[in-house]
Design a protein around this nucleic acid. Structure first.
Length: 205
DNA sequence: AGAACGATCGACT
DNA sequence: GTCGATCGTTCTA
C-alpha cells in the first residue's frame, strides 16, 4: 500500500471521505517533508448538495477545478484570508470533493508551526488546536490558490496509507478509534443540505 | 461598476 | 458564547 492513486479518488465521495481518515497527507516543501494524519473530513457533492460550490453543476472560474479528474487538489480562498484544501473525487465531470478539516501533526512540526505562527512565539504543536481546522491546515502546509489544481498523484502533495510510504518513521496510532459522522460546519445557509451528516471524524476510544 | 457573501479563525466578554 | 478581519468570487444591472 503506497501512495493513493487516481482510482482511489474516483470513488463515491462519502466513501472516500470515510476512507481518508487515518491516512497520511504529505507535503514536500523546499526539500522538506511536512505530514499529518487525517482525522477529520467533509464531503461535498455538486449533483445534489446546496453547500457545494458546484451545486447543480454550476461551472465558474472557481469551480472549474471540481470538474477536473479525480485526484486533483481543489484549493480556494475563504473569508478573504484563509484557504481550504479539497481532494476532487468521483469520475471526471462529476463535481465533488472531500474537504480536509483536521490533521494530527506527523512530520515537519517546526516548519508547520513557523508557517502558522511566524518566527516569534514558541507555540506548542502538540496542542489539540494546532491543525484542527481547514484554514489552519492550509496555513501550516503553505497551500494557497497557487497550488489549486495540483495533481495529488504527483510528488509535492499526496496521501498514503502509512508514514513509511513517504520515508517517515512509524506514527503511534491510538488503539480503538471509531468513525463518527455528523452535520458539516459553516453551511447553515444550505437549506436541507445543512443537516446532511457528511462530516467524518476519527474518535479515540 | 457595485454590492453581497462566505466550506474560518482568533480575540474577546 | 459573540464579533470583526479581509478580499476574491459571484451575481445584478
Amino acid at each position: 500500500m503506497a501512495r493513493l492513486s487516481q482510482d482511489f479518488y474516483r470513488q463515491d465521495t462519502l466513501e472516500a471521505a470515510r476512507r481518508l481518515l487515518g491516512k497520511y497527507l504529505v507535503r514536500r516543501l523546499d526539500g522538506e517533508t511536512l505530514a499529518g494524519r487525517i482525522v477529520e473530513t467533509e464531503g461535498y457533492i455538486g449533483r445534489c448538495d446546496k453547500a457545494c460550490h458546484a451545486y447543480n453543476y454550476r461551472r465558474t472560474a472557481r469551480t472549474e477545478t471540481l470538474f477536473a479528474p479525480p485526484g486533483t487538489a481543489y484549493i480556494y480562498l475563504i473569508y478573504g484570508m484563509y484557504h481550504c484544501l479539497n481532494f476532487v473525487t468521483e469520475p471526471e465531470g462529476e463535481p465533488a470533493a472531500v474537504l480536509l478539516r483536521g490533521l494530527q501533526p506527523v512530520a515537519g512540526m517546526e516548519t508547520m508551526a513557523r508557517l502558522r505562527y511566524g518566527d516569534k512565539p514558541l507555540t506548542d504543536y502538540r496542542k489539540k488546536n494546532f491543525l484542527n481546522g481547514p484554514g489552519k491546515v492550509c496555513r501550516a502546509l503553505a497551500l494557497t490558490r497557487a497550488e489549486n489544481g495540483l495533481d495529488l498523484t504527483g510528488d509535492t502533495l499526496f496521501v498514503c496509507d502509512a508514514p513509511e510510504d513517504a520515508g517517515l518513521p512509524p506514527f503511534p496510532v491510538p488503539p480503538g478509534e471509531t468513525v463518527a459522522a455528523g452535520p458539516r460546519i459553516g453551511v447553515d445557509y444550505a437549506e436541507e443540505a445543512r443537516d446532511f451528516p457528511w462530516r467524518f471524524r476519527l474518535r479515540e476510544a
